[in-house]
Design a protein around this nucleic acid. Structure first.
Length: 458
RNA sequence: GCUCCUAUAGUGUAACAGGUUAACACGUCACACUUUCAAUGUGAAGACUAUCGGUUCGAGUCCGUUUAGGAGUACCA
């Protein structure tokens, strides 16, 4: 049984690197009929907040990354950790350490001064007498010889000598367990088969494997996926970059488009660029995940998004667009139908916000800028517009072909070029220069509304 | 410093067990279409596969070197 887990620590929102990891965890379990588990790693009480938990779950929901078990909280499993710490203590795989922070710092400095690697020197390992009045931490007794080897599903074989590892603290002086220990106990209890996480955890892996072995348990398989960097190759920063998944929602990105783009970063299936989640599940394979970090290219994200907008059902798009229009206090009317408007304009937008903007002038008359008025709504243009309006009023059948014919004949009779009529019309009825074919706009908007908008005092 | 990870056009991936002129997409530029902006279509420029060396009849693909990025080296996660 394949069991994967996504284990964020709730110290902020879900960022896109996390979302990509979650996506791969989710995909790997879904593809193999396994289970996907959400675990909240909140042992850092100082920095963890409920608001972060909520926002992470909101983001997962928005992305449609559904989990089968959880969310589990580490803070609710403290008794279990204590039990397991005692086990290690009893089996001789852990010991008390009474060193103070000052003492440790001094030790490290001395080691560095001698050009050595800073490493706990085990001065408390064989302490016979225990003074219960003195505070102590509990350290894991790491093997000293040999090395830890695992075959990473993404990176290949990784080998780290035990010489490089020191006896990490598994319980703080207040008794609380630390990250590397909790992870092992959780992965054990939750029967995780595949640990898929960011490659910033590679260095933690050998320590965790050693703890698994101390418990005499089978270690899971590991897959360390590379980081996502900024377009200039620097690390993403919360301060300057859009790293929160929900910021992309606000930018009008579709969740399936974000996932598609994120999947394409660090993974590929031949030349396929645009795919549905179903196709992704068919094709996804951890072994095809690339091992080098990728840079985030927002232009391509928008391109991917525009493709998904074109693919998406008009009714579903309408529901999303209505929300945005409502926020702008624009009421969608019965006519023209929003789905028809969307059909006309959807190829013009690479995000939901601009799609909504393209729809908005069908329901609300906007006022052009002074500059536009000066350029296009000249006296001559207004005279032409007047004549054209009269012809529209007299037009008996309001079908697209009739409107097209009318425009064509009108321009011929007036001896003007299309833009001379088109641009003023766009500004007059839409309030903007950038619209689809104005014959289609006129047709869709309907006679009453078009005449009203073209009439001077309307 | 030490350990580990990484390195194919500006960007992202391809080239699935080493085999002809390294492909596709985004981006850029040009042209076409159009009534404007887009969308769409066609085409162009752009990499000697980070370095040096080795194995091989043959290497982007295997091995080593150097360099450059990144991660860790916490009573953070």
């Amino acid at each position: 049984m394949i069991r994967t887990r996504f284990a964020p620590s709730p110290t902020g929102f879900l960022h896109i690197g996390g979302a990509r990891t979650a996506l791969f965890c989710w995909a790997h379990s879904r593809k193999n009929n396994g289970k996907f588990i959400l675990r909240i790693e909140d042992t850092d009480l100082e920095r963890s907040t409920q608001a972060s938990v909520d926002s992470i779950i909101d983001a997962m929901n928005w992305l449609n990354l559904d989990y089968d078990e959880g969310p589990f909280y580490q803070t609710k499993r403290m008794e279990r950790y204590q039990e397991m710490i005692k086990q290690l203590l009893d089996s001789g795989h852990a010991y008390r350490c009474y060193c103070t922070k000052e003492e440790l710092n001094q030790m490290r400095e001395e080691q560095k001064a001698q050009g050595l690697k800073a490493k706990y020197d085990r001065r408390c390992l064989n302490k016979e007498t225990h003074d219960n009045n003195k505070p102590y931490v509990i350290r894991f007794k790491n093997p000293t010889g040999g090395s830890v080897v695992w075959h990473d599903l993404v990176k290949g074989k990784i080998e780290i000598s035990n010489q490089e590892l020191d006896d990490l603290i598994i319980a703080r002086s207040d008794g609380s367990p630390t990250y590397n220990f909790c992870v092992v106990v959780d992965d054990l209890d939750m029967k995780i088969s595949h640990v898929i996480r960011g490659d910033d955890h590679i260095n933690n892996t050998p320590r965790q494997i050693n703890i698994f072995k101390a418990f005499n348990q089978e270690v899971p398989l590991y897959a360390h996926v590379p980081m996502i960097l900024r377009d200039d190759g620097q690390k993403m920063s919360k301060r300057t970059d859009a790293v929160s998944v929900m910021q992309y929602k606000d930018m009008g990105i579709l969740p399936e488009a974000l996932l598609n783009y994120l999947a394409r970063l660090c993974w590929g299936h031949g030349d396929n660029e645009i795919f549905t989640m179903q196709e992704f599940l068919e094709w996804f394979n951890l072994e095809h995940v690339s091992s080098s970090p990728a840079r985030f290219d927002i232009k391509k994200l928008f391109w991917v998004n525009s493709n998904h907008i074109k693919m998406k059902d008009n009714h579903e798009l309408a529901a999303l667009v209505i929300e945005i229009l409502n926020q702008k206090n624009i009421q969608v009317k019965e006519s023209p139908k929003l789905v028809d408007v969307i059909q006309l304009v959807k190829s013009r937008s690479d995000n939901l916000n601009s799609l909504a903007a393209e729809c908005s002038y069908f329901y609300n008359k906007f006022i052009p800028t002074a500059e536009e008025i000066n350029q296009y709504l000249t006296n001559d243009a207004l005279v032409i517009l007047n004549k054209f309006t009269n012809e529209l009023i007299n037009l008996t059948s309001w079908d697209l072909q009739s409107i097209k014919d009318l425009i064509k004949n009108f321009c011929a009779n007036e001896n003007i070029k299309m833009p001379q009529l088109g641009m003023p019309i766009r500004l007059k009825i839409c309030g903007t220069k950038n619209t689809p074919s104005f014959d289609e706009v006129i047709h869709l908007l309907g006679k009453t509304e078009v005449i009203a908008r073209l009439t001077p005092n309307a």
